[in-house]
Amino acid sequence: MPMTTPAPVATPREEAREVREPGYLVVCWNDPVNLMPYVTHVFQRVFGWDRAKAERHMREVHEEGKSVLVRESFEKAEAHVHQLQGYSLQATVEKDAG
């Protein structure tokens, strides 16, 4: 008779902790419409970065197709994504697989 072991089920508390932990990435994707100086400005505004850091990420978006901007808890990552989307940038939350 085959025996099966039930898969572990996360409790609500574990799920809540996972959402609070900084395991989520804010990713900005390249698009053909937003101007490079505008993207730099938005990164400075949303993250409080200096111009050099904002430009570095902007160039990464432009040249590599995307840039991981920050690693945060789900709530904070989601808030950043909504800020970036409010500026019409293409940004998403992705779970950090690393």
């Binding site: 989601e78 409010g86 992705e94």
Partner: peptide, 23 residues
Amino acid sequence: PPLTRGDPQGMPGDAAALLAGEL
């Protein structure tokens, strides 16, 4: 715009629509 391109945290349709409307 979508919140995610993967599926890190499935969001109920109503919540996604609400956030999109807010945006």
